[in-house]
C-alpha cells in the first residue's frame, strides 16, 4: 500500500516534469500531471481484477482518453496535450530499454519476447486511445441526432397544437 502511494506520487511528479518539458502552462499543467497520476491509479486498481497487463494498459488508456477529452472540451484546448501527459507513466520506456538491452547483448530469444511485449503494450495504449475517441465521437453524434429529433418533434407537436387552436377559432 505504501509502495503504491509512493508510486502514485512519483507518477505525478514525473508527469509534471514532462508536462513542463512539453511547455504546458498554467492550470493545464496541473491537470495534465493529475491525469498521469489518475491513469496510474486506475492501472493499479485494475490490478485487483485483471492480471494481464496488456488488457490493463488498454483499459487504462481508454480511461485516460475520456479524462483528456473532458478536460480538452472544458478548457477548449487540443486533446493531445492531456493525452500525451497522462500517458507518460504508461509509456513502455522501461521495457523498450530492456528490449534493446537484450538486442545489444545478443540475447535474441529474450529480445523477441520482450520486444513483442513492448509492442503489445504500445499497441494497447494506442488502441485504447483510438477506441475511446471513436466511442465518444459516436456517442456525441447520436446525442446530437437525438436532440435534433426531439426539437423537431416538439416543433411538430407545437404546430399541430397551433393548428388545433386555429381550427377551434374557426
Amino acid at each position: 500500500m505504501e509502495g503504491n502511494i509512493i508510486q502514485l506520487a512519483a507518477a505525478f511528479t514525473g508527469s509534471l516534469g514532462f508536462a513542463m518539458l512539453f511547455n504546458i502552462r498554467g492550470r493545464k499543467l496541473l491537470f495534465s500531471a493529475f491525469g498521469g497520476m489518475l491513469a496510474w491509479a486506475v492501472y493499479l486498481l485494475l490490478g485487483c481484477l485483471i492480471v494481464n497487463d496488456v488488457w490493463r494498459f488498454f483499459l487504462t488508456s481508454m480511461f485516460l482518453t475520456l479524462y483528456a477529452e473532458v478536460m480538452a472540451r472544458r478548457q477548449k484546448a487540443p486533446d493531445t496535450i492531456y493525452i500525451i501527459c497522462s500517458a507518460i507513466p504508461l509509456i513502455p520506456g522501461g521495457s523498450l530499454y530492456n528490449t534493446m538491452h537484450c538486442a545489444v547483448e545478443g540475447e535474441w530469444e529474450q529480445f523477441s519476447e520482450t520486444g513483442m511485449h513492448t509492442l503489445m503494450l504500445a499497441a494497447a495504449i494506442a488502441l485504447g486511445i483510438l477506441c475511446m475517441m471513436t466511442l465518444l465521437h459516436v456517442i456525441y453524434s447520436v446525442y446530437k441526432d437525438v436532440t435534433r429529433w426531439c426539437r423537431w418533434r416538439r416543433a411538430d407537436e407545437k404546430s399541430a397544437e397551433d393548428g388545433k387552436e386555429d381550427g377551434a377559432g374557426v
Partner: peptide, 24 residues
Amino acid sequence: ISIGVIMLRIPGIALTNSIRDFFS
C-alpha cells in the same frame, strides 16, 4: 537509474503515436 534517466530521451511517445497513426 538507467531507466529513470532514459525516460528523458526514450521515444516512447513516438512509438505509441506511430501505432496510433497506423490504426487511423
